[in-house]
Amino acid sequence: MDIISYNKLPEKARNFIETYFSDYYIFKVTFNASYSVVFKGGSSVNFTSRGEWTSIIGNGNEIPLNIVEKFAEDNIIEKEVLNTIKEKYESPNIYRIIKKKNKYEILINNNIIIIDIEGNILKIKSE
């Protein structure tokens, strides 16, 4: 794993960070087949080599709901996914979002939920 300059991130990844995490202090950027941007406090966002996000890891820190809502507004995450989260959880505390092929694995309120892009919960398990 190599520590690299922020400017070496693909433009798509830099735009993602600047749009959704501009208030976060970047601690380091690494590359090892994929990119990882680690913020002060330990949260991170991971990207493919083409700069497409694959996961947002709170690492014990909550991912603010307003960021997740902005993802839905901008079609980063399907609106149906956010709607299902809000219906199921009165005050969701989201700690991790992993994007898979046609679904997401989300750590929320100490449960891991697998939810498809249409907002259907496929599985819920306790962490």
Rank of each mutant, 00 (worst) to 15 (best):
T19Q: 01
I17D: 05
S5K: 15
E105M: 08
K125Q: 11
I117A: 09
R14G: 04
I108T: 00
I56F: 07
N7A: 08
W53M: 02
V45G: 06
V29I: 08
D23I: 11
V81F: 02
Y24C: 05
I108R: 01
G42V: 12
I77S: 00
S5W: 13
V29W: 02
K8T: 14
L107T: 13
F21C: 04
V38T: 15
N32Y: 14
E127K: 12
E62Q: 12
K101R: 10
F21V: 04
S55D: 12
D116H: 00
K88L: 08
F39C: 00
I85N: 03
S55F: 04
P64L: 15
N32W: 07
Y35V: 07
V37W: 04
N75T: 07
K40R: 09
V37F: 01
R14C: 05
E118T: 09
S34N: 14
N32S: 14
N109F: 01
I26M: 06
N61G: 09
K123A: 06
D74H: 05
Y35K: 00
V45Y: 05
I56T: 06
N61D: 11
T84F: 02
S49L: 12
E90V: 13
I56A: 10
S34K: 13
K100C: 08
K12W: 01
S91D: 15
N7E: 15
N7L: 08
K100L: 15
N109C: 04
K103M: 12
D2R: 14
G41Q: 07
I113A: 05
Y25G: 04
K88E: 15
S44I: 12
E87S: 13
E62L: 14
T54H: 05
E90I: 13
N7S: 14
S22W: 15
I57Q: 09
I26F: 06
S5G: 11
I67A: 01
G42H: 06
V29N: 02
I121F: 03
A72G: 01
S36Q: 13
P92K: 11
K101Y: 10
N109V: 09
I112T: 13
E52Y: 11
G60S: 07
I124Q: 12
N15M: 11
I26H: 04
N15L: 15
I94N: 00
K8H: 07
T54R: 10
S34Y: 13
K101A: 07
N75R: 12
K101E: 13
A13K: 03
N83V: 03
N46V: 14
R96L: 15
E73Q: 13
P10L: 00
F39Q: 01
